[in-house]
Design a protein around this nucleic acid. Structure first.
Lengths: 241, 241
DNA sequence: CCTTCAAACAATCTACATTTTTCGCAATAG
DNA sequence: CTATTGCGAAAAATGTAGATTGTTTGAAGG
């Protein structure tokens, strides 16, 4: 199991010798998830058990477990007696996703601000600065953008961390996963010049730290709406071609 | 596989000869889910694979798949390398659950009302009437309350059905599952006289049909808060005993 | 062009092998 | 004498291989 050993070694090194043992099922789960989010497994593609098993050098059983977990998170479609597939992307479901994210994350941010503590504010500022110092890497330039993705997530998670509902945080995270899928296809077909998302994040951060609930929510929603608009343009160009 | 065959036969008869073939994994998933919601598998209880397999006369592999699905829905806890267990119930997590339900379902109801159609209104009224004509069955009287649970869910689902986000509807349903677990223990230890939940549902329904968003949301939130208060009293009595 | 049937393929399940954790009991340190 | 550590043995979770069941495909016949 070369791949597994390799990854285990990496994670040991990376996470400061926290030699977390991980089952094969979990290993497959994590890598399948990443590959679906990154678009390496294409939307609509069938996930044949044997192929997936071969891909991650695992047996069919752990693969099956991983797929079952992912199906409950809506990151794979499960078709009774006929296997699994990567869910399709569509403008409609993107619109629904963005709409729902705006509702839930705005609420979560509102609550977070209401429950503000010093530690929470510190973390918002910290994660913002880390994000602002990380460059977006385009696929053209040999792009592994995962560093930015991680810091981007960390910032958005910091914003809602104090909302007082782990359920809501989980739902927001699930939606971030889905959004990431769209972001990747957007980067691949990107035609428009990159916008300055740092500026948008700064506005959210400042309004949040100022305790200006309405403005913070507005900026957050604005960011998502802008992302949606850009994606809509790109997808329509592709659709028309 | 006596149990399976029996259940298949039942579902055929019950659902009008829609001879849906169901894998063993799905069968186990459905029954495990029901048994956890009904409290037949106790909070905190370990779910030993072999025992669960024996219980539903299935193999270990399908059981494992079912448990993995349920773990992603937070209806079982997964402990790497040491199996699965039924999640604990606690006042704190109940409070968090109710709080989050209020936020999300109120939003969903608001959107539903904004998108109202005739068909949607009809269904709200219909499901309300079906619910109001179904008696709550206490465990003392040989209580299988599943008929009421189904109609109760149908009503709450009808309220939010037009919100325009299948994601949000899914989240609300997941939370209904969790709430059901608390309702069952509440019924078992029920000391207080039953309240008139019909009246509460009527108020929600009427405000909704009137298009009175604020009142409808208030009534919905009220219902959940009342449920929470009653459960808090009951649990505190038990906790004190 | 639509059906029928069987071979090929793929999902699912069972049985068993392997790995890991748990638990009892004894040995040892405090 | 009590508490802690360190062994196995037993139990349980996880993984593999192959049997079984169901679905798809494509050619022959209506």
């Amino acid at each position: 199991m070369t791949l597994v050993d390799q990854a285990l070694a990496e994670s040991k090194a990376g996470e400061g010798s926290r030699a977390e043992k991980v089952t094969t099922a979990t290993f497959v789960y994590q890598h399948l998830r990443r590959d679906i989010l990154k678009g390496e497994l294409k939307p609509g593609q069938k996930l044949q058990i044997d192929q997936v098993a071969a891909r991650y050098s695992a047996g069919t059983n752990p693969v099956r477990e991983a797929l079952n977990r992912l199906s409950s998170e809506r990151l794979v479609d499960r078709h009774e007696q006929r296997g699994f597939s990567v869910p399709q992307l569509s403008l409609d479901s993107l619109r629904e996703l963005v709409k729902t994210r705006c509702w839930l994350e705005a609420k979560a941010l509102e609550e977070s601000i209401a429950n503000r503590t010093q530690a929470w504010e510190d973390n918002v500022i910290l994660t913002y600065h880390r994000l602002s110092r990380t460059k977006v890497r385009l696929p053209e330039e040999g792009g592994d953008n995962s560093e930015w993705e991680i810091k981007h997530r960390a910032f958005h998670n910091a914003l809602i961390a104090a909302c007082g509902s782990s359920l809501l945080i989980n739902y927001c995270n699930e939606m971030m996963d889905h959004a990431e899928r769209y972001r990747y296809i957007s980067m691949i077909i990107a035609t428009t010049p990159r916008r300055d998302s740092n500026e948008e994040h700064r506005l959210i951060m400042e309004a949040t730290i100022d305790g200006n609930v309405e403005l913070a929510k507005e900026q957050l929603v604005n960011q998502y709406q802008t992302t949606l608009r850009l994606l809509e343009e790109q997808l329509e160009i592709v659709g028309a071609a």
